[in-house]
Design a protein around this nucleic acid. Structure first.
Lengths: 285, 285
DNA sequence: ACATGTGTTACGATATTTGAAACAAGAGGG
DNA sequence: CCCTCTTGTTTCAAATATCGTAACACATGT
């Protein structure tokens, strides 16, 4: 694809290289805090209770260390113990997320148009924001039946190998995009090698056609479309995505019907004035 | 109130006293981790960006220490920096809460009946669960207009001085209730002295009439009703609450109309089979 | 009974964290 | 403009808090 090459070469020209890669025992980072947070990060919808040993194994820590860290987390109210002594996340963990939810009230206004897309596509529609090197879903709409995951705020995924991530990247421009790509290359060198080109192509397509598609690159059985929306006044980049079970996804419908429709929906959503539209959208409008 | 006295004396008889109160520098707890989490806990809907110095001041820490801890939190993706260098919560913090949201899918089924109550009362209805020594709102329904807070999952409040907290306590029985009260007395001695009696009365009322009321004891301008629902299969205690701006709350309507209606709604919600009904509800049914 | 796995505590060694101080950078104010 | 005040970061040595070993109690299953 020459579309992909365009941005790829632009990026390659830049040629800025790796700086300090002293990722190891960075004495400027607090390892105890990191480990504690890593414990909280181990949980998922499928793994909702973990034993001390299990945590120690996964994180490569001593059981005694984990015992103390978990005791601290229980004391703080973010973990609780079930009858068997296993550790579970406590509901209080929601309180940490509350300020973020409270700051994204605009998402409620987008639910009606999202629902339209969900019904039209018979899929799952979600609103995603960029957070560092990941995208985070802040609002799902649709029926979770036959989906491999439970649609709720907080699902995250990689930027380089997901439709959502790529359309978010499409919102970055110039130096900002370069910096982000550099960061991604540094953090995930293998992913970057593998997915850089399709990512560039997707970015290009988002800018030209208003959407991009990923055929199971992140979740193997899900085909995803995504369209960049813009930037909120407090700096969050936002994209609108739609996921379909692969077996139900007809490529021609996606490419020629659903994709353009989502781009169209994104346009009318931008009319609401919540987002600062990206420059490429302004040009097309 | 003799209703209050009943439980109060029952509690007083018990006479179990304070154990080890070595709350200070507990060498079994990881202070670094606690401090890091305390930083994340500083944020709220009104305080959404904090400077290094501000954090240091609030937590009584050295600026250098805060700098390192925040750097770690940024590195982990849970904090981000705004253009002025202030620290904000990053959307990725939602990912920590996701497993809890995913584990409470039953709340979606309760939204329709909650909406009914919201429309009937012209107030704000919420679903709360007990988490340690607090209640946590997991699902709000209603119009946030003219409310002092933004209704989203994650709002938390005290057990002893809120209607939600008290109806949650009403779900505990026997030794479990005693243990919880003992914990609350230990952690919040002043609150316990002040609010023990109205709390006992509220628990009693929940068991007899199915609801309780708090007139601005937690949020001064809010009158709150709450009714205990039961316990989910994974052990969460759940209550249904309704908040009204004080100026709009007529006491007789609340006591004689709204309260009984909420108790009634709770009964029909229990029919859905999501909750293990509390024993007092079974008796009444 | 034994053997295995687990979770917790004690304790000494040590590596991590800490606070003071110094620095650079910015914001007013005169 | 200089000056002052505040801020955020870094350096560095001190020391404190953390870590891993070991030992324990407990459970489970053979």
């Amino acid at each position: 694809m020459k579309d992909g090459k365009t941005i790829l070469s632009q990026w390659a020209d830049d040629g800025q290289c790796d700086l300090t890669i002293d990722t190891s025992t960075d004495q400027a980072l607090s390892s105890t805090l990191m480990r504690g947070l890593e414990i909280l990060g181990l949980y998922s919808d499928t793994e909702d209770r973990l034993s001390n040993s299990e945590i120690a194994r996964r994180l490569g820590l001593n059981r005694a260390t984990v015992s103390r860290l978990c005791k601290t987390l229980v004391h703080m109210g973010y973990l609780r113990r079930d009858p068997k002594g296993l550790f579970r996340l406590a509901p209080q963990i929601l309180s940490l997320a509350y300020p973020v939810l409270a700051a994204t009230r605009w998402r409620h206004r987008l639910i009606p148009p999202m629902r339209e897309i969900a019904e039209m596509s018979n899929g799952n529609v979600s609103l995603c924001v960029m957070s560092d090197d990941r995208f985070v879903q802040v609002q799902p709409v649709g029926d979770p039946a036959s989906f491999p995951h439970i649609p709720e705020p907080g699902i995250t995924g990689p930027l380089l190998r997901s439709a959502s991530g790529r359309s978010l990247l499409a919102l970055l421009e110039g130096q900002e995009l370069n910096d982000k790509l550099a960061e991604l290359r540094m953090r995930f060198p293998e992913d970057f090698d593998k997915y850089a080109e399709p990512t560039f192509a997707a970015i290009q397509r988002c800018r030209e056609e208003g959407f991009c598609v990923a055929y199971g690159e992140w979740r193997p059985n899900i085909v995803a479309l995504s369209t960049p929306l813009g930037q909120t006044e407090d700096g969050l980049y936002v994209a609108l995505s739609c996921g379909l079970p692969r077996f139900r996804a007809r490529e021609d419908v996606i490419e020629n019907d659903l994709g353009p429709r989502m781009a169209e929906a994104a346009n009318s959503i931008r009319m609401m004035g919540v987002f600062r539209a990206p420059s490429f959208a302004k040009q097309r409008a």
